[in-house]
């Protein structure tokens, strides 16, 4: 469903992504790991259409359609979802109004009429239980005054409501205690279906104990330097990133 071909991208004229290739199929869970500054978040930003990411070369295909010309909302309507690393607080926009607006845009896109208020509230209740988010939170403004863990749960709650085909979880584990991590992972696993896919971006292996990936990719200096199965994550947990970095630098030197 997602094919990234030789993707190069810059931010403020600084090269960040230097030739990414990635293929994601329905039903798969991919983990993208790597040290800080390797370009993980930039990759996610490029897929969802952040305007400050300037794509200089390569393609992002989603069901064979080039995404790069589409606005962020068009990408969202086509089923791409980003769970933000730092969800923004939006005082004055209530969770209910926000979600209803998002749901109805999605329904409009599919050619369906707006959801009835009672159906909408019923769906909200159902999904709240699924991701274990405190009921009181959804009566507040979007993320306003939420704790770090609540914000992340709220991301997964939105994911549950919108049922994306491709979900990208950007450092969803950062700032979470073990209980919150379990809840979030449980939510993500419950949403897993044969026809949707998940990309988990993380620095640490611990989230991958709960969301088990089919593939693990290591991103370093804007390139995927190693791909493997879930066991690669365990290797990284045990040995850190240094051995891979070294291997990569050596291979570069060797090729010179």
């Amino acid at each position: 469903m997602l094919t990234i071909k030789d993707l190069h991208a810059e931010i403020d004229e600084k090269d960040i992504l230097k030739g990414i290739n990635l293929e994601v199929h329905p039903g798969e869970v991919h983990a993208i790991m790597g040290p800080n500054g390797s370009g993980k978040s930039t990759l996610a930003s490029a897929v969802v259409g952040r305007d400050y990411v300037n794509i200089t070369q390569g393609q992002i295909l989603y069901f064979r359609e080039d995404l790069t010309a589409l606005s962020p909302e068009e990408r969202a309507l086509k089923g791409i979802f980003l769970s933000f690393q730092y969800p923004v607080e939006i005082p004055g926009v209530s969770m209910v109004n926000f979600l209803r607006a998002a749901m109805n845009e999605q329904r409009k896109y599919k050619g369906e009429g707006p959801m009835s208020p009672s159906d909408f509230l019923k769906l909200m209740r159902e999904k709240k239980t699924l991701v274990g988010i405190d009921s009181a939170l959804t009566n507040r403004s979007v993320n306003e005054g939420f704790s770090g863990g609540e914000k992340k749960k709220n991301e997964i709650f939105q994911m549950a409501m919108l049922e994306p085909k491709l979900a990208i979880l950007d450092e969803t584990d950062s700032g979470l205690d073990i209980d919150a991590l379990r809840t979030v992972a449980k939510g993500v696993n419950a949403l897993k279906k044969p026809d949707n896919a998940t990309i988990v971006i993380t620095h640490y292996q611990r989230l991958l104990n709960y969301i088990v990936p089919d593939y693990v990719h290591v991103l370093y200096k804007g390139k995927i330097i190693k791909s493997g199965g879930k066991e690669l994550a365990f290797d990284l947990e045990e040995k850190g990133y240094d051995w891979l970095k070294e291997e990569y630098e050596n291979s570069l030197n060797g090729s010179l």
């Binding site: 939006i90 926009v93 403004s141 979007v142």
Partner: peptide, 26 residues
């Protein structure tokens, strides 16, 4: 905030409206 709303499928125009409305709400 604008990007956040758009990334959930809300069109830019409507997202701006939501934010302005929120601004006025206070």
């Amino acid at each position: 905030a604008l990007f956040y709303l758009r990334s959930r499928g809300i069109h830019e125009y409507e997202a701006r409206m939501l934010l302005m409305y929120a601004f006025a709400h206070e």
